[in-house]
Design a protein around this nucleic acid. Structure first.
Lengths: 161, 161
DNA sequence: GGCCACTTCTTGAACCTTCAATAAAAGCCC
DNA sequence: GGGCTTTTATTGAAGGTTCAAGAAGTGGCC
């Protein structure tokens, strides 16, 4: 294993810390939401995303892209949320293959009810602990990483294909 | 919802970017390892952690704490890895309740075989894109977040109990 | 129009994680 | 030692995610 392949001491330490932080954070938020809202964090993110769109509705594919999950995962999730009455499917008027996912009144009410607790959890885990400077840094870093993973070009990551 | 409850514009943007980055990253690494090593990222982390300990072995509870997962999850994971022949359970000599999880030769070989690809994926997704300064920042930020979640005291997060 | 490739969304099976319940041993206290 | 609480690890069921396959519609091309 040459130097190209491996990580420096600092990179290793950073990577480990990052893994631990994301692990603990996801766990923490999942538990908080499961207890207070009866759904995992991802499902909450779906409702939350819908609530911010005009008409509180979005095409399935667009919703999947927005929250960074596969269509398959979204299909299963929406099926469950529909069972809860928090979301409803409508046929897309312009594309007969398409479905539009719509946040119901009950879904919106659930979001209003549970948002404060969720935001408090996020705040206390992250933003109450970071300086304003660090918040800005974390935003920049996250955007760089997300950008790099958005459309991994074969030329950029040759070992992946 | 008052100002205490909500996030500022910048915090919201950071939070969203962070979610996207971690989502895409986990997905990316899981897929890479599933394809090249036949296991999810978490399982790889278990083997990797074991490989760095004296005797390549660790008590179940300690291993679970090290990689930040529940004992239950570890039990299931180890059962699967044992089925692959990558890990073996031994009785703990000093505590008859205890089990020691041991990395087998086959498990170590698998790690050696797949480590370069995994490290390359991590490197290209993260460290090749961040400046040295940002790497240091990410380490600091991650440690702050992880610390805060390690043992959430009732006094610190009153809404959680 | 007819064909073909692509897109959209869903499905079921396999696998993974969570949660609550359990068994067994250890540690404490008298 | 006997009783009690705590710790260690596992189990099975319920729910979530992934993957490959498939149904149905769209759009381009001739």
């Amino acid at each position: 294993m040459n130097a190209m392949t491996w990580l420096t001491e600092e990179e290793q330490a950073t990577w480990r810390a990052f893994l631990h932080a994301t692990m603990l954070l996801e766990d923490h938020l999942d538990r908080q939401l499961q207890r207070d809202a009866g759904m995992p964090h991802m499902y909450y993110a779906l409702l939350s995303t819908l609530s911010e769109t005009p008409g509180r509705r979005m095409r399935m594919t667009e919703l999947a892209e927005q929250v960074k999950i596969t269509r398959s995962r979204l299909s299963h999730a929406v099926a469950r949320l529909e069972g809860n009455g928090w979301v409803r499917r409508e046929n897309c008027p312009t594309d007969r293959r398409g479905q539009v996912c719509v946040l119901t009144e009950a879904g919106h009410a659930e979001l209003v009810r549970t948002a404060p607790g969720h935001v408090a959890a996020v705040r206390s885990a992250i933003f109450d602990r970071l300086t304003a400077e660090q918040t800005r840094q974390l935003g920049d870093i996250s955007r760089v990483i997300a950008e790099g993973l958005h459309q991994p070009e074969g030329a950029d990551v040759p070992w992946l294909r």
